[in-house]
Computed example of a mutant assay.
Amino acid sequence: MKFRSVFDIIGPVMIGPSSSHTAGAARIGKMARQLYGRPPQWAKVHLYGSFAKTYQGHGTDVAIVGGLLNFDTYDERIKEAFDYAKEAGMEVDFIEEEGSSDHPNTARIKLGDETGEFELVGISIGGGKAEITELNGFELRLTGESPAILVMHNDRYGAIAAVTKVLAQYEINIGHMEVARKEAGQEAMMVIETDGRIPEVAMEELKDCEHILQVVTISE
């Protein structure tokens, strides 16, 4: 059997040909899209290590763009991601970085529109899996394999307790949680992975908690 392109090899849960360079890259892009919370108007994607060397041949570029369009890793539309991005008015630039990184499959993505922008670092760890290791300068570990919420808040007494109280009220069990801050008393961030999806009514209550600045959910 002869394939017209590498993207004619599509498995049941991920695109080919490489779980690390395509499916993992698509997952990084999708997590970036979900964390941003809306379609970005532009994106600058800095690629490091193996990503920088092979991104065109292995389809890392179209996979990341597909993720930014909120396509799943197995979505056949990924192979036309550049066309869909153009239709959506999304401009994406890829930059090959020569510097080293902690992981060979690393992408630093900057997203933005007229109302704001943000930046994250994602790594593809194999088997179609990925992790977000940095967000707007905060170090974290977010896999996207479980439902999760990201809470930006003022570093004040009671902020963490207020969030966990709401989750307990709706019987939402926490599987993993970490808190990061750049400086005491300034802006901080909670990353909470849960055993089940968080209902919208709980999200609204979280947004109304004292000292909470922003709440974003990530679905598996």
Rank of each mutant, 00 (worst) to 15 (best):
R4Y: 02
S5T: 06
F7V: 03
G11D: 03
I15F: 03
S18H: 05
A23Y: 05
A26D: 08
I28G: 07
R38M: 07
W42V: 04
Y48Q: 03
S50N: 12
F51V: 03
G57S: 14
G59H: 10
G59S: 08
G67N: 03
D75E: 07
R77H: 03
R77C: 05
R77D: 03
I78L: 14
I78V: 13
G89N: 12
M90W: 14
V92L: 14
V92A: 14
D93K: 13
F94T: 13
I95D: 11
E96H: 10
S100F: 11
H103M: 13
P104K: 11
N105T: 09
A107M: 13
A107N: 13
R108Y: 11
I109V: 15
K110A: 13
K110N: 09
L111G: 10
E114W: 09
L120V: 05
V121H: 06
G122E: 12
G127F: 03
A130W: 13
L135R: 01
L135G: 02
L135D: 01
G137N: 07
F138K: 05
F138S: 06
P147N: 02
L150A: 09
M152W: 11
D155W: 12
D155A: 14
G158D: 03
A162V: 00
L167H: 04
E171R: 13
I172G: 00
H176L: 11
M177D: 06
R181L: 14
E183T: 14
A184N: 13
Q186K: 15
Q186I: 10
I192P: 08
I192W: 02
D195L: 10
E200K: 14
A202F: 01
K207D: 01
C209M: 09
H211M: 03
H211D: 15
I218M: 11
S219M: 05
